[in-house]
Design a protein around this nucleic acid. Structure first.
Length: 446
RNA sequence: GACCCUUUCGUCUAACGGUUAGGACACGACCCUUUCACGGUUGUAAUACGGGUUCGAUUCCCGUAGGGGUCGCCA
């Protein structure tokens, strides 16, 4: 026997931002739809007029698109069940509401609010992830489904739309598990078959607390603004609560789709680890072709409120390939660019401290500089040869001169490949800064 | 507080009765190397606790503890 292809939905309310937990829920729904040849619906639950703004909706639409999630029905992609904004579906809700009234499933409070008369029975939820859960509704107060002003409550519109849009599977956060009891009552009151439910565990802060808007990395916009690669973020989000059941971690959405099964979804909440997300980002960043990296980097640079050194410099494009393999995320340009473009940048304390341990620093630097001065061809290979020659003259290993040379070049103990960086800098730019920092070092190190 | 879910290295997870409990991030060491990195190798590190069931429990059952969720005229 064959079952019809599933219809799933992501139904966010526009609160002004898209939470990573919400983004992952959207991703899981989308993955499920794509894995089974189903339909993914985006429905905006904007019944709360006060919070509903165009900017808030844009955060959702843009965020999902950025992640690589496309919807078959929804805003800007109208389908047979349009409109996909709850704020525009009033007549539908009125009609469904009347059904409930006619069947005597409701009663009105003195102030005008309307409640649904609960059967007060135990609902058994057959959850695809959590298993069978008994939800005792006998002691619960009747839920309100319509406010005195005539607007409808979440539970009501959510169920009505799931019926109207023929949603077959509801994949949502575990925080909704208790709502499901209410929702099933409503489905039954309408004579509709409830969808298949799958409640996924939540994403928590590193300290185990609930992620809220202001926590770093909680909003998807954080990753967009920090120029993360969407494939990396989507990949990371999937790793939270889902596993391919083997040792792979770097997977494309196409690879994940066939492995997206209920058995592969975890049962316990996961703490968000920004470090691992950055590591994953670095993996994707390293594989990026040069034009794409340039584009990403430059777009980020131009978006900075205070321009970073080198932003407008024509030599920027030449140095970007040196930086690409060194960073985990684009904002680390803020560390690399100043040391590369600013010859007067002061010498970092850790670099100075490491140098202080070197014997006979001043004479070594003098020898090294004299060899570099005499270089006619300022290429990485020539510079390397000059360093080797200086080292030979000093009877030390070339390696002993390279770290000091790095510090003279950038003022930092860490950075991009030194020799290519020196070549990129050019003789006329490099030599003065080498001399200046050598003077600064030897003046204070004695 | 009541109810529900959950519990393997610090973190994400694998192992669906028998493994030296595996991988990854982070951290340390070593190797590679011309510096910084990458990479390679490797180390530290876990089955919350207590009972059962079983020849044998990370795995099944019960209890305890911890964590999370829900208890709205928010969604």
């Amino acid at each position: 026997m064959s079952t019809p292809p599933p219809r799933v939905r992501f139904a966010p309310s526009p609160t002004g931002y898209l939470h990573v937990g919400g983004a992952r829920t959207a991703l899981f729904n989308w993955l499920y739809a794509r894995a089974h040849g189903g339909t993914f619906v985006l429905r905006i639950e904007d019944t709360d007029a006060a919070r509903n703004t165009p900017a808030a909706q844009a955060a959702i639409v843009d965020g999902l698109r950025w992640l690589g999630i496309d919807w078959d029905e929804g805003p800007e992609q109208n389908g047979p069940h349009a409109p996909y904004y709850q704020s525009q579906r009033g007549p539908i809700y009125d009609a469904y509401f009347q059904k409930l009234v006619d069947a005597d499933h409701t009663y009105t409070e003195p102030n005008g609010a309307v409640r649904f008369r609960s059967p007060k029975k135990t609902i058994v939820l057959h959850d695809q992830i959590c298993g069978d859960i008994n939800i005792d509704r006998s002691e619960e107060p009747d839920m309100t489904i319509r406010r005195p002003d005539g607007s409808y409550i979440f539970h009501f519109v959510n169920v009505v739309d799931d019926i109207e849009m023929a949603i077959s599977h509801v994949i949502r956060g575990e925080d909704h598990i208790y709502n499901t009891g209410k929702h099933i009552e409503l489905f039954q009151a309408f004579g509709a078959t409830p969808p298949v439910y799958a409640h996924i565990p939540l994403i928590l802060n590193p300290d185990g607390s609930k992620m809220s808007k202001r926590d770093q990395g909680a909003a998807l916009s954080y990753y967009i603004d920090h120029a993360f690669l969407p494939q990396a973020v989507a990949n990371y989000l999937c790793l939270l609560g889902w596993s391919p059941k083997d040792d792979r971690e770097i997977l494309t959405m196409e690879e994940i789709q066939p492995l997206f099964r209920w058995e592969n979804i975890g049962h316990s909440n996961a703490k968000f680890d920004l470090e691992k997300c950055r590591w994953l980002n670095a993996q994707y960043l390293a594989k990026l072709d040069a034009p794409s990296f340039d584009h990403l980097a430059i777009a980020w640079l131009l978006a900075q409120p205070t321009p970073l050194p080198g932003t407008d410099d024509p030599r920027l494009r030449e140095v970007l390939p040196l930086i690409q393999p060194k960073i985990k995320a684009i904002p680390e340009l803020a560390e690399h660019l100043p040391m590369l473009f600013d010859g007067a940048a002061p010498i970092a304390d850790d670099a100075r401290a490491k140098l202080a341990a070197q014997p006979a620093l001043a004479p070594r630097l003098a020898t090294l500089l004299s060899y570099l001065e005499n270089l006619s061809d300022w290429s990485a290979a020539s510079i390397q040869a000059a360093v080797a020659a200086a080292a030979a003259a000093l009877a030390i290993k070339p390696g002993a001169l390279l770290f000091p040379l790095r510090v003279l070049t950038t003022g930092q103990a860490h950075g991009v490949d030194l020799l290519p960086a020196l070549e990129w800098l050019g003789r006329t730019e490099a030599l003065p800064r080498l001399h200046a920092r050598a003077a600064a070092l030897t003046a204070t190190s004695t």
